[in-house]
Amino acid sequence: MEAAEHGLADRRFAGIDIGASRTKVVLLDDRKQMLGNAVRKTGTDFGETADRCLDDALGAAGCDRRSIKAAVATGYGRKNVAFITETAKTEISCHARGCYQLFPEAMTIIDIGGQDNKIIKLDAAGRRISFKMNRKCAAGTGAFLEEMALRLDLPLERLDGLAREAAGIVELGSFCTVFSATEVLGHIRQGRAVPDIVKGLFLSVIKRVLEMDSLVGSVVMTGGVVAHNPFLVDMAREMIDNPVRTPEHPQLTGALGAALFALDAASHTEPDT
């Protein structure tokens, strides 16, 4: 049943994903169209960042808070934004919901975030079969790339371009981010080309993720690390037999899922008009 039949037209539905690294907001209309979105560095005050990020998204959508019919929070800070919404879902469920909306088929979602990775498997009906998060170690996450960029004295945003320039690849052997940094320093000392080292870092990220779980169906890659380093997706395509897709906004699928849950909840509670 269309949401509009429940009198939800002109109402907005907010998904707020307060991640360890970045906060993301997506605003949807009753037809599940994205009207606005925003991303901010999360920082230390989850509530304030979410508040501002919501304002950014509302500004982009050209509407105000009164138009928000329902909101759902997700991510590490999901319980810290009670002034916006007390409804929270884990990022596992929200990524699953967001990705299935975009690719309605059986899939394995690979989400590479700032401080954790997730592998989520969905069946053809969108039901979650299983999920896994990385273990305690942050190897293979955005934090790994941040640390390596620091060691290489490179701005994060240059990594993708450098990896594309690589003529070869320097493979890293260690699980540990700190030991990897030592390896990288050794390669620099040996005069290896920086682009080859950066490509090796990307390979390390993909290997850490692929060893977490097996893959079923098509692979959908999401997360801020994928959004800012699309070369990762190109490399994954070469390594994975399954078809690999990525959404238009890989960083926003969690917030999108949260907004869809908000719309679902409003659809269930709105009286017929």
């Binding site: 590490y76 879902k89 884990t90 990022e91 596992i92 469920s93 954790d116 039901r127 979650r128 299983s130 999920f131 998060m133 273990r135 305690k136």
Partner: peptide
């Protein structure tokens, strides 16, 4: 030192959400 409470909390909540979906 080997326990990540946030990881465990998110994992458990997500697992219960999975059971709800089922």
């Amino acid at each position: 030192r080997l326990v990540s409470d946030e990881q465990n909390k998110t994992n458990v909540e997500a697992f219960v959400e999975q059971l709800e979906e089922g």
